[in-house]
Design a binder for these strands. Structure first.
Lengths: 158, 158
DNA sequence: CATATTTGGTTGACACGTCATCTATTAGGG
DNA sequence: CCCTAATAGATGACGTGTCAACCAAATATG
């Protein structure tokens, strides 16, 4: 792509390929989930986290932590999901400003309906495309990049 | 993450790590671009494509093709960018229903301002985190996944 | 104890992406 | 040539993500 002389042809292709692959993969996964269960990946991950939690409920803070989401994003997401009846907000006895997010019966039903299909999609489109060695390298690579990001964040904050 | 028994612990971690890495990487890149030049990655890629085109102009169709975007997304994006003065729409003489997207002086200025910084970010956060072997494996892995996606799309269409 | 700070969370504005729908033009087939 | 179909693109509605501002309860500090 010509202009960016500091990044070689191969590296540039790698970067473009990485972006494209991720985007297309997410598109496909989102599309399937939407068709099969009428939910997004975001919905799915929230439902799954709640399902795995004791009593099917979590504090927004903990949920955001688990998902790596900003609190504002989570709040919006929960509002939308609550409007669709997938989750409920409940008051928190031990902390007056806090609240609970509770999985509804409908939310549980929806999750269980999509669980196997979604996992199968992840397997067939992503995991099964990689041989064991590639998986290992990829895992290490993602870790390395994550480290870089951590360092960058550190420098920005500290 | 317990429930999904069909996906093993390690594979699940790989998947989660991949998602997290991509998300955090994009967040950081977007944030830097926004701070440095006041544009998003989407803006950036449009500007770059136009800059590399003959006469700094492209038909929306060709641009969408190059970026792998849907026409609707591109149209919205161009409207926003036009409102900010980064691009202009012009009529097309040879095809009455078509149009041109032209890079403005301001758009060019903005792109040039961000070019080196953005490339440097991609290098330091992503490319430099990977050794040559990892790059090679990653390139092949993305290719494989892309193939799967292609096959899936084929089955869906054909 | 009164006040300042931190924490948990929501809200509004705005950028972004997708889908379905729409218009205008061009191309094709009788 | 007329009518139909395909093409180029724009638009509106809606779900999503981020940032900044905000509110209220809780904690810390003088």
């Amino acid at each position: 792509m010509s202009v960016v002389s500091e990044i070689g042809e191969g590296e540039w292709a790698l970067w473009r390929g990485f972006l494209t692959m991720h985007r297309d993969l997410m598109r496909e996964l989102d599309g399937r989930l939407q068709r099969d269960a009428g939910i997004s990946q975001a919905d799915y991950s929230v439902l799954l986290s709640l399902f795995d939690a004791p009593e099917r409920r979590l504090r927004p803070g903990a949920l955001g932590q688990a998902l790596g989401w900003e609190k504002s994003r989570l709040s919006h997401q929960l509002s939308r999901m609550a409007a669709r009846g997938l989750v409920e907000r409940a008051e928190c006895d031990t902390d007056g400003r806090g609240s609970w997010v509770v999985l509804t019966r409908e939310g549980k039903r929806t999750l269980l309906h999509s669980l196997r299909d979604h996992a199968a999609s992840i397997r067939s489109l992503f995991l099964d495309a990689l041989d064991p060695e590639e998986k290992q390298v990829l895992a290490r690579a993602t870790e390395r990049v994550a480290e870089r990001l951590g360092e960058a964040a550190q420098r920005a904050t500290g």
